[in-house]
């Protein structure tokens, strides 16, 4: 199935895109999706506190993705 991924902040630099439609397994969880990102983009390991939101709502790692869901990846930002 396909999902939409929108990256903010430093996550955008690591992924190399701002927004992209990605193909994932049917019924993939956020945890599995994180592992997928980690295997493709090893630098993600450093971002321990990366947050994930699906359809504008923070979600836990056991959240099951549905087709066309929008996953937002939010890294912490410290500038002031």
């Amino acid at each position: 199935m396909e999902i939409k991924v929108r990256a903010f902040g430093i996550a955008k630099d690591i992924l190399g895109f701002r927004e992209q439609t990605l193909s994932v397994e049917n019924g993939e969880t956020i945890l599995e999706f994180k592992k997928r990102l980690l295997s493709q983009y090893p630098k993600f390991e450093d971002l321990v506190s990366l947050a994930f939101a699906v359809n504008e709502e923070y979600c836990s790692e056991d959240f099951v993705l549905q087709p066309l869901d929008e996953v937002v990846i939010i890294p912490p930002v410290s500038g002031g």
Partner: peptide, 25 residues
């Protein structure tokens, strides 16, 4: 609750390191 743990030092730049567009703040 949003960010339980900080990122490792140096990974996420601040304004001095990463830059910021002046009108944004």
């Amino acid at each position: 609750d949003m960010f339980p743990e900080p990122p490792p030092p140096g990974l996420v730049p601040n304004c001095a390191e990463g830059g910021v567009i002046g009108v944004l703040p």
